[in-house]
Design a protein around this nucleic acid. Structure first.
Ligand SMILES: Nc1ccn([C@H]2C[C@H](O)[C@@H](COP(=O)(O)OP(=O)(O)OP(=O)(O)O)O2)c(=O)n1
Length: 822
DNA sequence: TCTTTTGAACAG
DNA sequence: CATCGCTGTTCAAAAGA
């Protein structure tokens, strides 16, 4: 077990180099606490080591090494040429793997068959390495086999750099900067993904604009129009924004040919297409493959990439122009779209403004055009905008609302009405309603019956050119309207995990991402929601879109925290525990979303005193402990023993059963989960549960103490070890075929239920653990079998919920991976 | 009956 | 290579109380 090397790596070791101020002294209070926690963790991870597939290879390697020694004794000439060097051969080489093996071993080197663990291999030998592999192995020294041959010939170790594989190939292939393969398991996945996600940019830009609006508002309170005032609304929006900007940036004429902005070639979303492309029926949000098929034979579709910086820049200039104009309000809708409000203006005044803005924007954006809709209400401006596109403007006067205007608009053109509602409305009456002129005939009541109370109202007003109350808030209470009410992260692309650990880590990273934002807002949250996307039954493992989510079943669960918090530990633990309660097999997960639903202002009066937990302090490496102790003392930071917890008897019993080396870890986890549960709200729940428990206990006492001690039989067997044996055989016998028989399963469930009813939950846990290990072992060959999947289901949907139901927070899947020696 | 949670829909 | 299917909001039905 190799420990963390404090001599070399600890910044403490360098303190002599910084005579004025020691490393510890240079840290802020928070920094110091974090550093201490870090040390403690790094130590903790060491005992986390456990039996794994790697060990198998390790053993195999040991045997190989023995053989090699024998080989060397017999055939070697005592040369130490490759002493201290261990090589691994990748792919086809000349000379071949076997010869290289003998050459290296005969000359005192080591030959490694598996790249199981970094650090064991010093050099990789390869003649040819595919890009993927090359990136994967980027941190190794990789060279051609000639290095071995020539070194032996010369009788001395030649510099491997002269034979490096990468150097010459890199010149041939143009450098692909930073295209390292970053899967969802990689710490940088989020960053990578977001940097290329248009929807992430769109969302982020929007919240930034809203935040900026609120700030501006604080600085210089704007005059908000009174409700009875006549207003003029300008709704301004770029024509096919991404397409226009990308085209201009790449020197394409937006009017000359059909252009789309996208990443890929087939199942890639089209973010924006120009009006030339729309002539063929191509629309934003379509897949490229579909769009290509819509093109006439022989006509080419131009694909352009994203240029987010350029989008942002053009938007800045656009908004600058709006702010410089004399509007009373400039309300941000999105990166390329804004609503501007003034008091009453005549038709010709409106016309002047529209022309001016269109001219000005085009001038500073390389000819990108905006269209403008102008009217006496939000909805009229919105509809006028629709009619004005592309590259135009339309002003609708209140009295000029003619039938032509309405008949040219479709139901989906109404704000808030999408495909689903449009279908519903259209089919509600016969003949089906096709345009807004027809919709105007529909009675308010039947509209409400059709689409619900609020939406019915809204639509009824909208087709009469009026805004409903909710929409009006944007103008009359803009501050409240643009105030952020929740905070969330959604990842539904690239999610492919194998184990719950990996998901845990991912959840940690997502939580950290959210908490950073939360703290920046100076807020806390009191309600969390976890939403996951789970591959739908009967859907292919890999959907058409590369790393896409495919068709999924969404499942969500929310949690209330008794006290608002911004603490990572509390939130991350809660989310991870929620994830487990959703019982999703790791491999079936296709998307994760975490939301902070309720945001509350951080109360400034109850600032927390910093302290260090005594247990963490005790776990510090001894060489730094005293020094840290002095530093803490100097700053009057307490080392505090956290209040002794009421550990319920299950937990105590469970812990005593554990091998000592993992006891600490489990205790620690229980500590974390208890912390979550110790919120006020849960305390009440706990008390209620406790009272009920007491009742049950009293009852079982009444029935006779021996209920707890009475042996429980399964298949007429009382010896637990034998029962386990039986179950294991059962699993093995059915894993390749159809899985457990329903009748057997019912008996087994009954047995488990009786175990858990009689305080013998650790035994259930043990069975659970053993089955899970068995599945893990068999997964390599049988994971596609019906039986395997059935057993996985039994584990996740029958056994695990039993453990969870008893309010034991320790019996997560993670805990089940602890090694028992049976 | 009222409140809370969940899920659907929508927008860009 | 592919591909980057986010995120905040509102409403209503369902589920509790
Ligand atoms: N499904 C969508 C819709 C929009 N966008 C992006 C690209 C658009 O350029 C930008 C603005 O959206 P709009 O709805 O305003 O669409 P366009 O500006 O592309 O076209 P239009 O002229 O219809 O406004 O948002 C996107 O990425 N994916």
């Amino acid at each position: 077990m190799s420990g963390y090397n404090y001599e070399e790596d600890s910044p403490l070791a360098n303190k002599s180099n910084i005579p004025e101020k020691s490393f510890l002294e240079s840290l802020s209070d928070d920094g110091l606490l974090e550093y201490i926690a870090g040390l403690s963790q790094e130590q903790g991870e060491d005992h986390g080591e456990q039996y794994s597939r790697g060990d198998y290879f390790h053993d195999k390697q040991k045997r190989q090494e023995k053989q090699d020694r024998e080989f060397r004794e017999r055939y070697g000439n005592g040369s130490e040429l490759f002493s201290g060097i261990s090589i691994y051969v990748n792919g086809f080489t000349k000379p071949g793997r076997l010869q290289l093996h003998e050459m290296v071993v005969a000359n005192g080197g080591k030959f490694v068959h598996f790249l199981s663990c970094k650090g064991r291999v010093s050099h990789i030998i390869a003649s040819n390495l595919p890009l993927k592999k090359r990136v994967e192995l980027a941190s190794y020294k990789i060279c051609r086999p000639e290095w071995i041959v020539d070194s032996i010939e010369e009788g001395k170790l030649l510099p491997w750099q002269d034979y490096a594989l990468l150097s010459d190939q890199d010149e041939i292939q143009p450098k692909l900067p930073q295209t390292a393969i970053v899967s969802c398991k990689h710490p940088d996945f989020l960053k990578q993904f977001f940097s290329k996600s248009r929807l992430h940019h769109l969302s982020n830009w929007k919240s930034d604009l809203r935040a900026e609006f609120c700030e501006r508002f604080l600085e210089k309170p704007l005059r908000i129009p009174g409700k009875s005032e006549v207003v003029t609304v300008f709704h301004i929006d770029f024509d096919c924004f991404f397409a226009s900007v990308s085209a201009a940036a790449n020197g394409f004429d937006i009017h000359a040919e059909p252009i789309v902005v996208c990443h890929g070639t087939k199942n890639s979303d089209i973010a924006s297409c120009n009006y030339e492309a729309r002539r063929y029926g191509i629309r934003n949000g379509m897949w490229v493959g579909t769009a290509v098929r819509m093109m006439p034979r022989g006509k080419k579709l131009v694909r352009l990439g994203y240029d987010f910086e350029q989008f942002e820049l053009m938007s800045k200039r656009f908004y600058q122009i709006l702010h410089d104009s004399q509007f009373e309000l400039v309300l941000p809708i999105s990166i390329d779209e804004a609503v501007c409000v003034t008091g009453y203006l005549t038709h010709s005044e409106c016309e002047l403004i529209c022309r001016g803005i269109r001219e000005n924007v085009s001038n500073v954006t390389n000819g990108c055009t905006v269209s403008i809709g102008c009217g006496g209400s939000l909805v009229l401006a919105r509809l006028a905008l629709k009619r004005s596109k592309p590259d135009g403007y339309q002003i609708v006067d209140c009295d000029g609302l003619d039938d032509v205007f309405w008949s040219h608009l479709k139901i989906e053109d109404l704000p808030g009405v999408g495909h689903s509602l449009a279908c519903k409305i259209s089919e509600y009456s016969y003949p089906p309603i096709g345009n807004l002129l027809e919709l105007r005939q529909m009675a308010q009541d039947s509209l409400r019956r059709c689409v619900g109370e609020k939406m019915g109202n809204k639509i009824y007003l909208a087709v009469r050119g009026k805004d409903d109350e909710e929409s009006c808030k944007m103008i009359y209470e803009p501050r409240q309207f643009f105030q952020r009410k929740s905070l969330s992260i959604d990842i539904n692309w690239g999610i492919r995990f194998d184990t719950i650990y990996e998901i845990d880590e991912f959840i940690d990273r997502c939580t950290q991402y959210l908490i950073d934002k939360l703290r920046e807002l100076d807020k806390k949250t009191s309600q969390l929601t976890l939403k996951i996307m789970k591959r739908s039954k009967d859907e292919a493992i890999e959907p058409p879109k590369y790393l896409g989510m495919g068709k999924c079943d969404p499942v969500a669960r929310s949690t209330r925290l008794g006290v608002p918090t911004d603490e990572f530990g509390v939130i991350a633990t809660e989310i991870k525990s929620t994830f487990r309660s959703l019982c999703c097999p790791p491999r079936e997960l296709r998307g994760i979303a975490i939301q902070f639903n309720k945001l509350e202002k951080t109360a400034s009066n109850q600032a927390k005193l910093p302290f260090v937990d005594a247990k963490i302090y005790q776990n510090l490496p001894s060489d730094v402990k005293s020094e840290i102790g002095r530093e803490l003392n100097k700053r009057s930071i307490n080392i505090r023993r956290t209040a002794p917890k009421r550990i319920n008897s299950y937990q105590e019993q469970f812990i005593q059963e554990l091998p000592t080396q993992i006891r600490g870890e489990v205790e620690n986890e229980i500590h974390i989960t208890n912390k979550v549960n110790k919120t006020k709200f849960d305390e009440i729940k706990e008390q209620v549960a406790k009272r009920q428990n007491e009742k049950v206990n009293a009852k079982s006492h009444f029935l006779g103490e021996n209920t707890i001690l009475l042996p429980i039989k399964f298949q007429n067997q009382t010896n637990f070890k034998k029962i386990i044996q039986l179950v294991m055989n059962w699993v093995d016998g059915t894993i390749r075929s159809q899985g457990p028989h329903e009748k057997d399963l019912r008996l087994f469930e009954k047995y488990l239920q009786r175990l858990s009813d009689t305080n013998r939950l650790p035994l259930v846990l043990r069975i659970c653990k053993l089955i899970s290990v068995k599945l893990e072992l068999r997964s390599e060959f049988f994971s596609h079998c019906n039986g395997f999947q059935e057993w996985e289901k039994v584990l996740l949907q029958m056994i695990l919920p039993k453990l969870n139901k008893n309010k034991h927070t320790f019996q997560t899947v993670r805990k089940l991976d602890i090694d028992f020696d049976t």
